[in-house]
């Protein structure tokens, strides 16, 4: 029943992550933290309260050694568009205070820290655990404050935060474009920090709807899949893996169900 405000055909920024290339080094996580002023606590080994907007998961095929295989899977916010990219992402619709929204112009799901009052309902809604709660006050002792970037505001305790696809980089790229009299960005002008840092080049970022962008082609790869497609969250992060067990691990299947690489609701968007 949500009324769709009329929107111009916008961009749909998304990511394709080639899991065959990912080494599990964790650069993306560190780059993200450095770019987005993510704080560090004295002890971050409790991963249930450790903020990492992009998190690298370790998947195994659950076979005994030495048949065991491991795949590393970086998981940023999926920026779900919901069915038909209407913006009905799991988290956006549940936020009681409109602290998060879906931007039809870029396909990016925002998180407004100063609006959020910390009910954590969006975290309950997100099956990807992409949302993190600031259980503690962020602290940058001593001169570490000097590392803070003015492009991203530090979050206060008691609010939820998550990956923004480095939206401030989009803003800065747009500013540059405006000054140069353009309204459009080239493919490389707006890249996320993790994409840029990845030593393997495993992450590709761009407009999923723009046929000139690499991601638009890569997402059509036969080995491309998304996480939990059956929930119809319609994520904007695609993965590619040549390994069948990895693709199957991307979603839940009943015992004898075949692995589908395409979503059930494929007809809804395209």
């Amino acid at each position: 029943m949500k009324k769709e405000t009329e929107h111009k055909p916008g961009k749909k920024y998304g990511m394709v992550i080639d899991l065959d290339k990912c080494t599990g080094c964790g650069s993306c996580m560190a780059a993200c933290m450095a770019e987005n002023n993510v704080p560090c606590k004295d002890d971050e080994s409790n991963k249930l309260s450790s903020i990492t907007w992009i998190r690298v998961y370790r998947l195994t095929n659950r076979k005994p050694f030495p048949e065991t295989e491991i795949c590393y899977l970086p998981r940023p916010c999926m920026h779900c568009g919901g069915v038909g990219d209407q913006g009905h992402s799991p988290c956006v619709s549940v936020c009681p205070a409109t602290a998060t929204d879906y931007d039809h112009g870029t396909g990016i799901v925002s998180q407004i820290y100063t609006r959020c009052f910390g009910c954590r309902y969006c975290m309950a809604a997100c099956p990807y655990h992409a949302r993190y709660f600031n259980w503690w006050d962020p602290v940058w002792p001593g001169d570490l404050k000097k590392t803070l970037s003015p492009n991203v505001s530090p979050r206060m305790r008691g609010v939820v935060e998550k990956c923004s696809f480095c939206f401030h980089r989009y803003q800065l790229a747009m500013e540059k474009a405006y000054v140069e009299g353009r309204r459009d960005l080239e493919e490389g002008e707006y890249q996320t920090a993790c994409t840029q840092a990845c030593p393997s080049g495993a992450i590709t970022f761009g407009d999923l709807d723009n046929p000139d962008h690499a991601v638009a082609k890569m997402k059509e790869h036969p080995n491309a899949f998304r996480l939990l497609e059956r929930l119809q969250t319609n994520p904007k992060v695609y993965y590619i893996s040549s390994r069948e067990w990895v693709r199957r691990a991307g979603d839940n299947y009943l015992k004898n169900e075949p692995t589908n690489s395409k979503p059930r609701a494929a007809a809804h968007h395209g």
Binding site: C95, C116, G158
Partner: peptide, 18 residues
């Protein structure tokens, strides 16, 4: 709630779909 002083946002800035 994480920010009790802002609790009233739920009324003021209500998202009626939630």
């Amino acid at each position: 709630i994480g920010q009790p002083l802002r609790g009233w946002f739920i009324f003021w800035h209500a998202n009626v779909h939630s």
